[in-house]
């Protein structure tokens, strides 16, 4: 086991919408399958547990060069990640992320929103973004931009009733995602406008 194996390079974290992935460049050894193991260290481990590291079993001796660390980055503190290569009994040095990663740095995208008018009822459908998310939905009657109303929605797996609309009026809606755990919000989705059913055709 004394052959030299270089540590993985280009170690970085991709984090979008509170889903975090560690990636690295493969270590190339001709004709051989190199495996990798990943460990994390939170602020607690650094400050109170002698700088210990916690292995991620799903990414132990994996051949992939990416590891889903979402489940383990589950506190809003500074984390470090490291990965090493292994070929047979030969192990490389650990390659460690430069600086720290805090999930508050995740990039948040605006929610996918669909607005529907059903008679006099203003309805929205929002794509689920995961358990950490809730949605701030703003809506207003077109022309009355100063009288914006707001609803905060958590349950999103269906068509949600927002409000009832005045006959024939046009209403506009936009939404942003909010993550309470990191106290941040995405930008707003594009505004969508729909028109309520008019009076004359109303069941005469």
């Amino acid at each position: 086991g004394d052959a030299f194996l270089p540590a993985p390079q280009s170690i970085s974290i991709l984090s979008t919408n509170m889903k975090h992935f560690l990636t690295w460049s493969p270590v190339i050894v001709q004709g051989a399958t190199v495996r990798y193991s990943v460990e994390f260290q939170g602020e607690y481990e650094r400050e109170y547990a002698n700088g210990s590291w916690v292995p991620i079993s799903e990414c132990s001796l994996t051949t992939a060069t990416v590891c889903n660390i979402t489940e383990d980055i589950s506190a809003t503190v500074a984390y470090k990640l490291r990965v090493r290569a292994q070929l047979g009994t030969t192990r490389s040095q650990w390659g460690t992320t430069k600086g720290f990663f805090n999930r508050a740095m995740t990039s948040l995208t605006p929610p996918l929103l669909m607005v529907v008018a059903d008679g006099h009822h203003l309805l929205v459908e929002l794509a689920d973004m995961g358990p950490s998310f809730q949605f701030r939905v703003l809506y207003w009657k077109k022309g009355q931009e100063s009288r914006v109303q707001q609803k905060v929605l958590k349950e999103v797996s269906s068509v949600l009733h927002l409000d009832t609309m005045e006959a024939g009026a046009e209403y506009c809606v936009k939404a942003q995602a909010h993550v309470e755990a990191i106290n941040r919000s995405s930008s707003f989705s594009p505004t969508q406008c729909v028109r309520a059913q008019g009076d004359k055709s109303m069941w005469l």
């Binding site: 008679g119 009822h121 929605l153 349950e155 068509v159 949600l160 009733h161 069941w203």
Partner: peptide, 27 residues
């Protein structure tokens, strides 16, 4: 959950208080 049996459309409401009035429905 409120289901319109004619159109088969289902709407969901999330409320904290225990009363809900859904106006402007079809007679």
């Amino acid at each position: 959950s409120v289901l319109n049996k004619k159109t088969k459309k289902r709407w969901f409401f999330s409320i904290s208080n225990n009363t809900l009035v859904v106006p402007w429905l079809e007679p």
